[in-house]
Design a binder for these strands. Sequence first.
RNA 1: GGCCGGGUGGUAGAGUGGCUAUACAGAGGAUUGCAAAUCCUUGGACGUCGGUUCGAUUCCGGCCCCGGCCUCCA
Length: 458
Amino acid sequence: MSELQIYNTESRRKETFKPIQPGKVGLYVCGVTVYDYCHVGHARVMVVFDTFVRHLRAQGYDVKYVRNITDIDDKIINRALERGESINALTARFIDAMHEDERALNVLPPDEEPRATEYMQDILQMIETLLGKGCAYRADNGDVYFSVRDFPDYGRLSHKKLEDLEAGARIDVNAAKKDPLDFVLWKAAKPEEPEEAKWSAPFGLGRPGWHIECSAMSTRCLGPHFDIHGGGMDLQFPHHENEIAQSECATGEHFVNYWMHVGFVRINDEKMSKSLGNFFTIRDVIKAYHPEVLRTFLLSAHYRSPVNYSEDNLEKAKAELQRLYGALENIMPGEAVADTDYERRFDAALNDDLNTPQAFAVLFELARDVNKSQEPALAGLLVKLGQRLGILYDTPEAFFRSDAGADLSEEEIERLIEARNQARKDRDFARADQIRDELKAAGIELLDGPEGTRWRRV
RNA sequence: GGCCGGGUGGUAGAGUGGCUAUACAGAGGAUUGCAAAUCCUUGGACGUCGGUUCGAUUCCGGCCCCGGCCUCCA
């Protein structure tokens, strides 16, 4: 069996994965800030790490997968005020929506899903530790800052030098900071903020800064030193860099062994993001496409490459998935054959830094084999491996008929098919073709086979 | 400006120092009442200029172009 290789952002190369404890993996992924619906960029991170975890488990690892929820920050507060809604109601609503989106995408729930507001004790403790060790300080305005200069290794993840950072720093007029690079651990409460956003702490009423929650929660859930930490590319700096600084200062231990970062989803060669306003939400996309099509689209490129969101590319993903489901259409999948070259190559592809495009290539070869051989055991293998990528959970019929938008009901379609088949029996092919064309115009494609006529929405 | 990542056939997208990626689209064939699906065969590529090499799309360097981070962002 091939060894698992992971591209580590910190070393900028693929490394053979060596777990801290044999057979076990501790994985922490930065989740979303819940003040809006998840978009396709979030979907990519969810789907990539879900696939990664499925693969690790298939390889026999005992995985503890932790993905946090940021449920307190400026944007949440502002959005709640804007809407005249309580923070709690707002975040609860979007957390539910996120879970709904994940279920649609066949994203399995993480083992733990810590929320910042539920780990306030750990956050406070870590800040106190940092203050005690002298790598954090209380500023005149009541904020608590981390002193970047006190962490000599700062920049080791994102490969930045302090001088360069200073040179490029945008003008951040914050007189309270001793150094412009320092970042906030605790934000002092302001009078206009809702009571819900204020926690009492030894260093004053306020709320945590963004970075500290991940250090506190990952340490609590996985310990001070764990295997893998992941997230979107944009979290590399400053978020993850800051996590390293805080955590290592606080615990004195090496924080994380492998850093994985997922590439962006783009639109017209531009990053999809909330600030640019060019995002599509998951729920919007799956109104028009089967959720597995979106998942296939997201996995059809390597996770570190950018992927371009477009209707064209979604259509391509749909065609790919049709190819796979097509192989399963006339066959009852049986128990998957074991010990095949297909599975070995599939595993090897995923072991190679989660090379999902390569894994898909194996699936297509397998699908061709299924089409030719009509072997239930091969079909079973196709389903098994497909599900490892989080697809092929549906029945082919349901998949091919899933597209919304066709005007005809299934009964009407069946009736027309019957009429056509009668015409064919009567050798009235003109009439038969007329019905075919009619259905085609309504988005229904007919497939005549030995066992009768099947149909699909196209 | 500093630091990263990338430029592969019509499209999407892997990969490799010399040997078929894969999918859709294209061409030819088998099959079909006609189609579709399926199977077989097939054309088509590695931004640019140099270097290393017997040989580079693959290694090295310059250049051009694209994206990202340096501010909240998955």
